[in-house]
């Protein structure tokens, strides 16, 4: 369960604006986070607080496969992205690094910038505490929940390998 202030963006937010390629010469999440969203919202990095939430429209994270994009958002302090839909590589990458993202078109349409929003990852319930409205996002399938619970795909794989060794 997290509660945070909302940063709101539109449709087709692409990975080139989430983290421009000119900064991809660094693989460090902390370094990438300094430039997160700067081409569409230069003030984002100065305003974002740990625990905040990002809300956006359709096809969030389209474009390049750079995992640097969810890494940068995660390292900026954002705890969750809610969007009407996600581009598929961004979706995979977020799950694979253990960064929770929720698809919910109604919430994406109605929640406004600056609202206080809480998200319950166990149930998929999104509550806009500013307006008092609640939204139900689809919960992750069990397999994906296991990956997120292990902290990402590689820790999950490692745990599986270890379990197989000791079986």
């Amino acid at each position: 369960m997290v509660t945070g202030t909302v940063f709101k963006y539109g449709d087709n937010v692409d990975t080139d604006v989430i983290i421009p390629a000119r900064y991809l010469n660094s693989p460090s999440a902390a370094e990438l986070a300094k430039h997160c969203m700067e081409d569409i919202d230069a003030a984002f990095v100065t305003k974002v607080q740990a625990g905040d939430i990002m809300v956006a429209g359709w096809n969030f994270g389209c474009g390049s496969s750079r995992e640097h994009a969810p890494m940068a958002i995660q390292a900026s302090g954002i705890r969750c992205v809610i969007a009407a839909s996600f581009a598929r590589i961004f979706y995979r990458n977020s799950i694979n690094i253990g960064f929770p993202i929720l698809e919910c078109p109604e919430a994406a349409a109605e929640i406004a910038a600056g609202d206080r929003v809480s998200v319950d990852f166990d149930t998929g319930l999104i509550t806009d505490e500013t307006t008092g409205k609640s939204y139900q996002a689809t919960a992750f399938p069990a397999f994906i929940r296991r990956i997120i619970d292990q902290g990402g795909l590689l820790p999950y794989l490692k745990a599986e390998q270890e379990a197989a060794k000791h079986a």
């Binding site: 496969s65 750079r66 995992e67 590589i89 995979r92 990458n93 694979n96 690094i97 990402g152 795909l153 590689l154 794989l157």
Partner: peptide, 8 residues
């Protein structure tokens, strides 16, 4: 895919 998928 992303880098974690590549690693996996």
């Amino acid at each position: 895919v992303g880098s974690t998928d590549m690693a996996a």
